[in-house]
Design a binder for these strands. Sequence first.
DNA 1: GCCTAAGTGCTTTTT
DNA 2: GCACTTAGGC
Length: 705
Amino acid sequence: MDLNELNEEQRKAVLTTEGPILVLAGAGSGKTKVLTTKIAYLIEECGVPPYNILAITFTNKAAGEMKDRLVKLVGDKINSAQISTFHSFGVRIIRENAPLLGYTNNFNIIDSDDSLTVVKKILKEMNLDSKQFNPTNIRNKISSAKNEMISPDEYEKYANSDIEEIVQTVYKKYEIILSKSNSVDFDDLLLLPIKLFKKYPDVLNRYQEKYRYILIDEYQDTNEAQYILTKMISSKYKNICCVGDNDQSIYGFRGANYRNILNFEKDYKNATVIKLEQNYRSTTNILDAANDVISHNKERKDKNLWSNKGKGEKISYYKAYNEKDEAFYVVRKIKELIKNCDYQDIAVIYRTNAQSRVLEEAFLNENIPYHIVGGTGFYNRKEIKDLLAYLRLINNTQDDISLSRVINVPKRGIGTKSVLNLEEKALKEEKSMYEVIDSGKEMAFKNIIEELINDSHDMTLTDLVDDVLEKSGIKEEYISEKSLEADIRLENLEEFKSITRAFEDREGVISLNDFLQDISLVTDIEYKYDPNTVNLMTVHSVKGLEFPYVFVVGMEDGLFPHINSIYNGTLSELEEERRLCYVAITRAKEKLFFVNARMRNMFGSSQSNQESRFIKEIREELIDKEFKDEEPTKKVFFDLDERPHFDHSDEIKEDVEYNIGDNVYHEVFGTGKVLEVGKSTLSIAFKHPYGIKKLMKNHKSINKL
DNA sequence: GCCTAAGTGCTTTTT
DNA sequence: GCACTTAGGC
């Protein structure tokens, strides 16, 4: 194996195969390369069987990429190694030991939305006003408790206020509802394996023997449960390699504890610590800016990240008039950049998902192909969640949560009262809601499910989806609605079948159970976009990625850093925002753009923000201001707001009449349907990306079909 | 039980 | 500016 491409420290990290090792890897220092090379080295040079390797990444995407790279290095045998997220790994362990944990194999995994539904339901039962007791807040508290491995009973010790006592009660009920439904939530995926290992040392021993070599990526983002789980499995052979960067810890809000990385040497005796400080990604101007910002954090280990890529260009900084101007600045710059690069070389990143909308509109109107990474997408749509609930119920009739969701979808005259009755009956008889159905309209529903269960035994997954859509009446409901909204829903359901089909092509015959458990951990589908698109995403989603050109928009106090971290936050929250900024800056290889707006529409009203304090933390000579400091007068501002930023006079088609329902074709974004006709805009629904997009009317790139 | 209209409160970030 | 909740009429 050729290790000559690695620098001395990287090589040391690869060659140190035995014992605990911590790799402190600064941004862009080649940690992914180290991890993949190390795994390949273990297999090829040390003769470690792939099934003895456990590699944990932070996202499914990162796991996929690591596998792809390793297939190229060592071939298909890598498939017997366990390379996945903590959560997928947890699913695997639970599946292999479900009965020991009191679950059947077809347990259901509920997402955070479903958790919230359960919490809301409990609050309602307890006659508590959801305004006074915020359900999201309570769910988060339960989640944190679980992540810190505090059981409902133990929670009593922590319950000092009225609200916390309520949280405890809700937590108790929540756990009962879940286990009764044979369901687990995301937190359980980590908790249950720990419980299992504590209770059954022989089972733990089996996994310790199996996973003799453990590698954890993004160690700074592990929470208490992940930390314990790692420690348990590695405690026998102690061949554990953790890679991370405490300056890039950005999931504190989710219980991540970056001290795990700082305490590594205490936790693992005789640990080898390796620092990767050479950055191979960015120019020094970009790196200096990143260092300037992060050096303002008090709670950190100092490190010296350097690069030999030369100074490069300064950071461009544009202060826009408002958020539209901000978006059009980005568009303008992209049009210049694109003369010498591809769209995929460019990323636009922001603090909150809500900021993507204005950018989307600008991109659509200016024909810039884009792709929004992450965010709420396909699986969050009502029609998809309904379909999934049907499939879950077919797979596991104990699933009260799914049953409650779809027993009246489409409308069957089963209202909240009837559902409540079912719940009470089920509780009294200690059965599932499904089991206690024995008459009335509910029985008709049960018969449909019975039929579907029967069908499911000798049907492919894709055919079963069709079957569900038919027999449930969902399909008919949407067809008869004849609205464009319903058409989009139907198309999305069709799209779902292409997912199941792809699944079947890849995995062969697959059980409903396998499919559901796999899909629960996927947050969004990989659409087959033209790969040559600009990437739009949050700072959280961009972690681990790099682009030659990076725009960071919304660089304003109150947005980035986020308002909550400034006012009701603690120092540590502001420091996390700063780390976020550090992550954002260090994504750029060649050129970085900061953009912000003097005025911004938030919640419908205009608001003016100060420039982000993070910009002020960067020495001036690194920044190139592309604006004049003085405030524009109100009059100028108003005109600018209305002013078209690009001259489209040669692109406007005369005399084209658009009507609602027209099919249209857009040169860059494909086919869509007109939903709404405004004075100067059309609302068009595109299949990809699903949903409604506003475009300029009579635009050259829109063609009636 | 269902539908509509008006009202409200909200947004951080995600496996 | 939107998504979700609630009240009131059918």
